[in-house]
Design a binder for these strands. Structure first.
Lengths: 361, 361
DNA sequence: TTGAAAGCGCTAACAG
DNA sequence: CTGTTAGCGCTTTCAA
């Protein structure tokens, strides 16, 4: 870590010009074999690693794509990391850490997709989770570091987005389609919920249902609810004959809402706007001895892993989260290649996955 | 995105020098209020965003920390992302996507911890997943982009690591302690397994156990096995009287190994080197009608979410994965602050979590 | 408190 | 195929 070698050092040691050193990295085949070997040898001897900062400056592109999503810092203590020796091992009865929330699970997968696609296309991926109050600073910070930015819908004010978009391509992830200047990548929330709801209403012939929506600021919830309403129309069920409650996308919220529902007459079906909520509903149903699916059908949305392992396993609409991440990167690189493109909207297909909580009829 | 404004543009528009513009961002309080206001106004009008590349070049530090981990590309099709309209929604009976593998789950959490700690300390986080053959290129690529690099043990050859370490601090995540030049962050694998095994051997008085180890190239497996052996010694159980099998850390592997075990006399306890394996064991046991914990005790290691939701829920050793990520970043920034530090090893504490598969006695 | 000027390490014409 | 030469946009002394 002493004196970091540069092109100049490599050039000198191998008796060529710095331009040739640069070429060895940028376009190896324009350099004669023996020359290249000499350079490469010097590179190795010296431990040379090209500086991305210098390259970025000179080439006016960083080859980095940024991903911005809501922070999850609330759950993490602010305490400093200490180097405690871990020799004594406590034995506890229950898991102290709460289960990670749905948004995280969701975003981990999106991140994975973005990561894969980015490196595939020769870009590095920079991730930033938005801490509440520092959002603005963060966004411009990473905007200055990348060639393009993918942002989860509703996590950044439009003004800020527009500001950033003057400089680099911005793509919005999830949420409703918007006819504006940004590229947009999302899943078929509406059609997905509509299809699933129709399966409940028509194939199962269950009309006596309750719908548990998510928070009003969710980027996707409104579309799902609309899909549900479409299904009511499709199936000739009056909106007034079904109940729509609102919860908060968490398992606990699902439990609470289920309790509210069960305070009244027991419905034959409970459709939830996401899987976490549905898992909470299942918890309460099991605890009350209400059988699923015999007494009540339950469905979720997202396709998180926990839904596959629950008892009963959860019928849901599976979102292609990894693909969402990939598509976001794709959209950015496409615009980088051709900035004159019209704003594009990619809608990725979803799948209704039938499991025990609402089985195939 | 037309003509990206620079310090020069801001300086001109606000009638100051570029040095002052720089100061407004680097050390705002050394600039007189009115001057600062003028500059800030120009910044806004122009849509100026500082270039991280230029800054990195000039300041000789990027303020980025890198995280390198094994790739997960095998599972993702190489097909291009297409912009298919998602209007038709298929209805399928089972989830087509396999469950994400343990390593990913593990790393998602580590990543989250690193992300949190990095931004907290004013660093951006760059992530790279190693594609098999391009590992070397990837590692040096990201090494040129960051001020420090955290690498999962065994994913990068030591030579390469040493090469990179000539330039920037490198910290190794997980795996056995190694008395070498690198900083190292890991969890108490050995003591954790030892404590859990002793609980089975002593508190439950179950000596007739089988241990299912993981792949030999796992960074952590050897330590856990050693911890198990320590427990045998602690409890006065002859090594020759217990069986040690090797599996591959996957749920399927756990199933296969359980089948092998059950081909012989049924043991009273099955200790697994990770949770996924244990979940596979539970699958087979349930299928054969063998009761857990009444007939057989089962334990895992890691503390993944799925273990909490399984039936029966899984007794395990919980690793602080988020903390591992944080600690890694902490180690890097510490060395950045003081490069003369001796190589350090951080060992984070673990916890035995008792659940149904091996309950408190 | 502000300005002038010298780089930081590399890329990309343009010559040769 | 290789060398020369301008910058890229910002930080950072050193003076004023």
């Amino acid at each position: 870590m002493a004196k970091v070698p540069t092109v100049y050092d490599v050039a000198e040691r191998s008796g060529v010009s710095i331009a040739t050193v640069s070429r060895v990295f940028r376009s190896p085949d324009t350099v004669r074999e023996p020359t290249r070997q000499r350079v490469l040898a010097a590179v190795n001897d010296l431990g040379y690693v090209p500086s991305a900062a210098a390259r970025g400056l000179a080439a006016r592109r960083t080859n980095v794509i940024g991903l911005f999503f809501p922070g999850h810092d609330e759950t993490v203590p602010d305490q400093p990391v200490d180097s405690a020796r871990g020799d004594t091992v406590p034995i506890v009865d229950d898991d102290p850490a709460g289960s990670p929330d749905a948004e995280n699970l969701y975003f981990d997968e999106v991140l994975r997709g973005a990561e894969i696609e980015a490196w595939r296309r020769g870009f590095a991926l920079m991730v930033a989770a938005g801490r509440g109050n520092t959002r603005e600073a963060l966004v411009t910070d990473i905007a200055g570091r990348v060639d393009g930015l993918a942002v989860l819908a509703r996590t950044v004010p439009d003004e800020l987005l527009a500001y950033v978009a003057r400089r680099i391509p911005v793509v919005i992830l999830a949420g409703a389609q918007r006819a504006d200047e940004f590229d947009h990548v999302s899943a078929s929330n509406g059609p997905g919920m509509r299809t699933l709801a129709n399966y409940v209403l028509q194939s199962h012939g269950v009309h006596d249902v309750v719908y548990i929506a998510g928070p009003t600021d969710s980027p996707d919830d409104a579309e799902r609810l609309a899909g549900f309403r479409d299904a009511l129309a499709d199936s000739g069920v009056a909106e007034s004959s079904v109940r729509v409650l609102r919860s908060d996308f968490t398992r606990d919220g699902g439990r609470a809402t289920a309790a509210r529902i069960l305070a009244g007459p027991q419905p034959r079906g409970i459709l939830c706007s996401n899987d976490e909520t549905a898992l909470g509903v299942l918890d309460v149903l099991e605890q009350r001895g209400i059988r699923v699916p015999e007494d009540v059908l339950v469905t979720g949305f997202d396709g998180i892993a926990a839904g596959r392992h629950s008892r009963p396993s959860l019928t849901t609409v599976h979102q292609p989260m990894v693909e969402l991440g990939r598509a976001a990167v794709h959209a950015i690189t496409a615009r980088l290649d051709d900035p004159s493109l019209e704003p594009q909207a990619f809608t990725l297909p979803v799948e209704v996955v039938l499991r025990q909580s609402c089985p195939r009829v």
